[in-house]
Design a protein around this nucleic acid. Structure first.
Lengths: 152, 152
DNA sequence: GGGATATCCGCATGAATATGCTGAATATAC
DNA sequence: GTATATTCAGCATATTCATGCGGATATCCC
């Protein structure tokens, strides 16, 4: 018997390949692949998979994979990680310097990069040090404060 | 008279601050701010703003700003990073092992974690090695293939 | 001004989605 | 084994959302 998990994968595959605009349509596609389910089940699947129905304008819609990283989430995660691995925040002009547990600088720098903030020009990571290059001194100052808040 | 554009701004502000789960609720909030509209209008606004209703599990939902990066993007980025830093992919049962340029394992492992894939139980990173724990051998096998494809 | 055209939005309703309830299947405990 | 709990999914329906239509107001051109 086709498991729920398999069906979930099938759904993700379908919506990432073709453009599905309603659950009824998704039911059709699933039936085509041998998953005989109803709209109710698909609705629950969509909930569990956290899929979103994105409006495309002119009344069109399509289902899409939920964005896994909302900026808030990244900040949340960054918060947790900061408390664990970051020991110190300092700054010289527009350069914010973070001291981390040995070996974790690169990982944290990756995460910071992923924020894609306009006020961050880029990051550079060594073994236990990250340099975050702010666009301006003022922006770096604000950044420093934000980072410090994460530590608190 | 309050313009449509102002109302659009108000909507974006509302949903980014509080958790709005239905259009009716959004109508209430808007009325509280002096925008006297009906659900129909809000529905049209949501379409124009391309807002999505994200399932949060247990039947809860909230409206959110359209998401800019879909999972595909993360995979794209992972692809670029893999080509630069990952040298080898191997596997023993349900453990996929990645060999990376020295010092980059942690960073890449962070990124893999962020995919939050159901088929990945977790990752463990050393200096130049990442172990990705697959949920099953079959899934790990598929993962290995995916990773290898990224290298190609 | 007045007619033509376009935008906006409410109403009513149709379309789409979510869910309470139930029974069946499966896992877990005894 | 049987008993008990949990998961799963269908049905019927409630809830939520989208939209055709028409009226109101605005805009432009003559």
């Amino acid at each position: 018997m086709a498991s729920k998990e398999q069906r979930h994968r099938a759904i993700q595959e379908i919506i990432s390949v073709e453009s599905v605009s309603t659950q009824a349509e998704l039911v059709d596609r699933l039936r085509g692949k041998g998953y005989d389910v109803t709209q109710a089940t698909v609705s629950r699947d969509i909930n569990e998979l956290r899929l979103v129905r994105v409006p495309l304008g002119r009344g069109k819609h399509k289902y899409a994979l939920a964005q896994l990283e909302l900026t808030e989430d990244v900040m949340d995660e960054l918060g947790r990680i900061f408390q664990t691995f970051v020991h110190d925040v300092d700054r010289g002009e527009n350069l914010v310097v973070l001291k981390t547990t040995d070996g974790h600088a690169t990982g944290i720098a990756f995460l910071i990069d992923r924020l894609r903030r306009d006020d961050i020009v880029g990051t550079l990571a060594g073994e236990d040090t990250i340099m975050v290059v702010g666009r301006t001194v003022a922006e770096a100052k604000r950044l420093q404060e934000e980072f410090e808040d994460l530590l608190a």
